[in-house]
Every structure is written in C-alpha cells, then in structure tokens.
Nucleic acid binder design. Structure first.
Length: 282
DNA sequence: GACCAGGAAGAGT
DNA sequence: ACTCTTCATGGT
C-alpha cells in the first residue's frame, strides 16, 4: 500500500483533522484506520508517526486534500497571539483544514443548521445513499455524493426519505440553482472573501454561518470565522465578555465577533476558529 | 418530556 | 434595518 512520509517540519495530526467536526463522512475504526468518502472516492488512511499509509487515491490527492502543502507552523505562529488560543494550539497541533469538495460541503452545511453533528452525518449519508453512485470497497458498499443536477432531477419530493425536515426544500432549491457545480465553484473561487460571502449567501438555506463554513472548508478563504453556538460561547467567555448572553445570535453580534476575530487573530483567523472549535466542551 | 443542536427564512414593524 | 416566529428532526 502506498505511503507518504511527513517531513519533520510538517506537523500533521490525522485524528485531530478528521474528528474536529469539519467533515461529516469519515469514520475511524478501532484499529486506527480512517475511512471516508470524498466525492466519488473511498479513501482509507492511517497515521503512524510521520508515516501516512493510504489507499483509494494517489498521493497527490492526499497531499492536496489534507492541505499538506500548507506551512502550518507559519499559520499557527500567526494566530498564536494569546494564552487561550495558545493552549488550543498545543492541544491539537497538526490539525489541518482539509480541502472539501465545494458542492458536497455546501449541501452539508445546509443540512447542518440547528442540528447536532451525529444528525448531520446521518442526513448526508442518507442523501448519498438516495442519489449517489455505489462504490464497492473491501466488501462494503459506499455511496458518492450526488451532483446537484441529480438532486434537481429527483423533484421536490425526491429527498423526503432523507428526513431533512425543513431543510429539504433548501437542499432541493439550491441544487436547482447551482445545477452545474463546476461553473458555480469557479465563480466563487475567483472572488475575494467578502464578495464570495455575498454570493454564497444568495443560495437558499445558506446564511452567514453556513457561508463562512463553506468558504473556509471548501474555498480556502481563511479570513472566514464561522460563529455557531459553541464559538459564540467561547468568544464570550474568553474574548468578548460584554456580549449579550442567552438571546439568539443576531447578525450584528455575528459581525462583531467575526470582525474582532479577523482583527485579533489575523488573516488566518479561520484556522484559529477551528482550533477553538476542536477544543469545545473540554 | 424538556431542552438543545456547526441557523435561516419570512413576516411584520 | 431590526425583531419575532416558525421550521423538522434526533440526541441527551
């Protein structure tokens, strides 16, 4: 099986990267192997020290997907500007933001609103099973994530069995709007963060939070700082004590938090966000 | 059974 | 431009 050797100055922590909540289609077996579906590939990978062993994709794909070309030391040095983020970095050093397929990421975060992570995972798996192509791997059947055109062709009620709740028309509607994922993706890629954010927010079912997740995880816009209930809590406790507590998060508060983060952590504040999120409830 | 979850849309001010 | 309400589902 192919392997890839990490350089001494190339920190990477596979477990932290895949279990921090940025991806929904990876599972860790008890023997240390991770298995995930990325668009139409089933990838198995494990880490033993500085060695990655994998199958299902060429090394170039692995290197790109896991952002192994990113100078993580430099990124972390740039956001490591106070004691609290410093502790989060120590705890999860080697966590990297992966490069998610844009359409799958977009549909995923529509499904993610007002839900917990196990539920989100179940919904995405249900969509893949409903419309994706089966992929056999070591005696198990996996399913690719369907292109938007496939979902659009399924009609209004095609997703009913996926039990998306009120998100069903959003996923369907956005599938119809995007249709050609490649074209849409290129358009967003070209835009700088704030403009890309406006563009992505036009889609049905995507507000500020989902847009920031999509831009961070799929478009490498590292200035994005997604604010969910966990991040809001952490920011209130450690950085912005004057924020109102309890009440629903308003657009104004959201902007206050993300602008503070952009200012405080710098141009890679998205990385800071993910280290903070990884350290939630502990 | 209450309460919460990687929120967002729509209607009414 | 702000505030309030509603939305469907599953985990704890």
């Amino acid at each position: 099986m192919p392997t890839l050797t990490l350089k001494p100055d190339q920190p990477f922590n596979l477990d932290a990267t895949l279990s921090c909540g940025q991806v929904f289609r990876w599972d860790r077996a008890t023997d240390g192997w991770w298995c995930g579906v990325v668009t139409d590939r089933v990838i198995k990978i494990r880490q033993d020290g500085d060695t990655l062993t994998f199958r299902g994709a060429p090394a170039s794909f692995i290197r790109h997907y896991f952002s192994l070309d990113t100078n993580l030391d430099a990124v972390l040095r740039s956001v490591d500007c106070d004691d609290f983020i410093h502790a989060s970095i120590i705890k999860n050093r080697g966590l990297r933001l992966v490069r998610q397929p844009a359409w799958e990421c977009t549909a995923s975060y529509i499904c993610a609103t007002n839900s917990n992570i196990p539920t989100i995972r179940r919904r995405i798996a249900a969509i893949a099973k409903r419309y994706g192509k089966p992929i056999e791997c070591e005696g198990t059947t996996y399913y690719s994530f369907p292109e938007p055109g496939i979902i659009a062709c399924g009609g209004h009620n095609g997703l009913t069995e996926c039990r998306l709740g009120y998100r069903q028309p959003y996923v369907f509607g956005t599938s119809c709007t995007v249709t050609d994922a490649g074209v849409w993706e290129k358009k967003v890629h070209k835009l700088p963060y704030e403009e890309a954010r406006k563009e992505v927010t036009k889609l049905h079912g995507i507000g500020p939070k989902a847009a920031d997740c999509i831009l961070l995880f799929a478009f490498q816009k590292y200035e994005a700082f997604p604010v969910d209930v966990w991040i809001r809590r952490i920011m209130q406790e450690h950085y912005l004590p004057d924020l109102a507590t309890g009440a629903p998060l308003t657009i104004r508060e959201y902007d206050t938090i993300r602008r503070f983060a952009r200012e405080h952590f710098g141009e890679y504040c998205g990385y800071a966000q993910e280290y903070l999120f990884a350290g939630r409830e502990g």
